[in-house]
Design a protein around this nucleic acid. Structure first.
Lengths: 104, 104
DNA sequence: CAGACACATAAGCATGGACTTATGCGATTC
DNA sequence: GAATCGCATAAGTCCATGCTTATGTGTCTG
């Protein structure tokens, strides 16, 4: 189940940090490690988990692999969230921002 | 960090099932167990995790405890998601539904 | 008030997951 | 083509986590 993969991937703070970094712009695994105190295999394993969850996608560039945010994972979270829209508070600021931005 | 609590709470499929049941209407812990093959302590522990994540809130009613969805947790997910709105695909059906429902 | 009931908490166990070190593999460079 | 580089994978270790059984706490009922 992909939904399970997504939430389990985001349950780890290191992976959320990686995702956040990629959201600011795609880069390769080595660049991601900069300033993060994480070993190369650990980074590779985290990226693998994020990839399985459709939160990140890769693109080979010679001997580098460029990683970037995969919108599919985010869309799946939005779908999950939409199921519970009946419970969203009426006037949360974040949702208003969200609304404004999505409505063209 | 509450954000961490939320994603870790949702990483467990049993807890997502519990949350989904509560989204269909508040009920007590025993009622939640119906048709779920889960022990009483396990249910209690799951509810405790969901409560810490602000995904669920409780309300004592005599010797029963009624549980219901806490909108705060959902709002926090929406806020997290909103940070990455630049990556949302333009025309995902779920987002259109979301939009329509939020826009009064 | 004694028992049953709804639920929480404690403690122990077993599995999962995040890390490590070591090694493999394809691409580039000299 | 040998060495290096960027990354993936393997295997082992350690801790977190979800379960269990046992027991505690508060509430209702006969």
């Amino acid at each position: 189940m992909i939904e399970n993969d997504i939430f389990r991937a985001l349950a780890d703070p290191t992976r959320r940090t990686i995702f956040e970094k990629l959201a600011a712009g795609g880069m390769n695994a080595s660049a991601l490690r900069a300033g993060m105190e994480i070993s190369q295999p650990a980074m590779s394993q985290h990226l693998s988990v994020l990839r399985s969850a459709k939160l990140v996608r890769e693109e080979r560039r010679g001997r580098f692999v460029n990683y970037e945010v995969d919108p599919e994972g985010l869309a799946l979270i939005a779908q999950w969230l939409a199921k519970y829209r009946a419970y969203w508070p009426a006037r949360i600021e974040a949702l208003k921002v969200l609304l404004k931005d999505m409505d063209q």
